[in-house]
């Protein structure tokens, strides 16, 4: 499904290249006047008027997203749980190499929590620890996570990891601990301060981050003109993370 969309989009982009190009730079020019993540007063709750989203242009990610993954590791302190075997290590984000079996067309993209509008992990969680914030960020409320791993069974993107051992000296802004499930949370602690997620900062030329509900945001303008495919769009989850060039 997503491949058909991708094909159609590329086709249209090729046909109407000049016109769209003109519009595109207009999009950019307008966007730099306002920041992508407006700072929110610390004592105000997040609002459902906002829906955070990310558009990743994989053709412009020259490293396939390695820098983004590294930034995520540093920001959240995962990637080296000393006692866990490789299959047990947490991976909030990874680069996936995809090769079409017939055409041999190949590309690499970063995959993490796709921040679905209808997240299966939230549906299945018995305690509500797996949750979606008002602003569309899907995360684990580790305070009430009992470690049943049902969300890991339910996630179609394999976005979640289970912490298999006790940890110390976590990042103060990113708690993670034994017996709970964890995943990309779009760097909530940064967004709440009006900063971009760490991975977005690590790939500023290939990723646009912003509010999908705001028609004037840079990301809304970009997805409107260029589209933005979802991984497993057939599941109808309406993801917040979108890709160009799938």
């Amino acid at each position: 499904m997503s491949q058909i969309n991708a094909y159609r989009r590329k086709f249209m982009a090729a046909v109407g290249g000049v016109a769209v190009g003109g519009l595109a730079s207009g999009v950019i020019l307008r966007s730099v006047e306002a920041s992508d993540v407006p700072a929110k007063p610390a004592d105000q709750p997040v609002s459902n008027k906002v829906r955070w989203g990310m558009l990743i242009d994989i053709n412009r990610l020259t490293d396939g997203g390695v820098a983004m993954v590294e930034a995520c590791k540093r920001e959240h302190g995962w990637g080296n749980d000393p006692k866990s075997r490789p299959e047990q290590q947490s991976q909030w984000m990874r680069t996936v190499k995809v090769t079409d079996k017939l055409t041999q067309h190949s590309f690499t993209l970063p995959v993490m929590c796709q921040h679905c509008e209808e997240p299966p992990c939230v549906d299945v969680c018995p305690t509500g620890a797996s949750m979606k914030r008002a602003d569309g960020i899907v995360q684990v409320n580790k305070h009430i996570c009992i470690g049943c791993r049902y969300c890991m069974m339910a996630c179609p993107y394999k976005a979640r990891s289970f912490v298999h051992e006790s940890l110390t000296d976590q990042r103060p802004h990113s708690p993670r601990g034994m017996g709970t499930v964890e995943s990309c949370n779009l760097c909530v602690h940064r967004i709440d301060k009006g900063q971009l997620p760490a991975c977005v900062e690590a790939a500023p030329n290939a990723v646009i981050f912003g509010d999908l509900n705001d028609p004037n945001s840079r990301i809304s303008q970009a997805v409107k003109t260029l589209g933005g495919s979802q991984i497993r769009a057939d599941l109808g989850l309406n993801t917040g993370v979108r890709y160009l060039g799938l």
Partner: peptide, 12 residues
């Protein structure tokens, strides 16, 4: 920033 969208179209 300016090239962000234009260049991706060229690539496509």
């Amino acid at each position: 920033d300016l090239l962000l969208l234009g260049q991706s179209q060229q690539a496509q």
